[in-house]
Nucleic acid binder design. Structure first.
Lengths: 110, 110
DNA sequence: TGACTATTTGGCTAGTATGCAAAATAGTCA
DNA sequence: TGACTATTTTGCATACTAGCCAAATAGTCA
């Protein structure tokens, strides 16, 4: 595999890796609605605030979200508007999986 | 976070995790062009055939690709047609990153 | 059957990711 | 300044991933 191709694929993989965690997906979905502080997000997920902070810095590092400090709080918001369109196809895969599963359950009859 | 939501996000995360590796992205791009045997794919990437086989089984496991045995070879192809549209938005994030980087290089002048 | 090719699986190591708790940092407000 | 709140960083334990090699499995063909 050529170096140039490899670098392009690594860049993509880094973004996908940042998205590939339930808590981080949840954060992205919340930020789609409103900007949120770390505290607000922590209240919604059941993990430690330090863990949430780390998830946020991962998302920020790949450029999916950005932050702004106001007072002693830090507010995060999406840096890229289209992130969620992006999931239509993920959902298509999930629907396929479900279909395959039901097919199996059904003994392949239908 | 509710159980139902959690399960949905885990399903998504699993698919993203399967995609989040340069070699697996490369495989997906190849299969977009043609179906390929394990050997053919191995010739294109510089990792052991056993590693390629494992990457393929990960992609298969989440339903992104499917396989068909013909003779003593196994041919893999995409199970879901839209996988690559899906990257327009990943590319948008990468472009943003590049813009931000150039901006920094430029001392924020432009 | 035996030799061969193609693929998958198991075992191992090294590197990476997750998450908590504690400590450090930054800001507010009396 | 001191007490307080919000956030990030560090240290650490645990668990997962990627990759190689060797072994197992499956198919072809003489």
């Amino acid at each position: 595999m050529e170096q140039r191709i490899k670098e392009r694929l690594e860049a993509r993989a880094n973004i996908l890796k940042a998205l590939a965690h339930p808590t981080r997906l949840f954060i992205i979905e919340q930020l789609e609605q409103n900007e949120c502080s770390v505290n607000e997000l922590t209240a919604m997920v059941s993990v430690d605030v330090s863990t949430v902070s780390k998830h946020l810095s991962q998302l920020k590092q790949v450029g999916l979200i950005c932050d702004e400090k106001r007072g002693n709080q830090v507010f995060y918001r999406l840096a890229v508007p289209c992130v969620m369109n992006f999931f239509d196809c993920v959902e298509a895969v999930i629907d396929e999986q479900r279909a395959r599963y039901l097919h199996l359950m059904d003994g392949g009859r239908k």
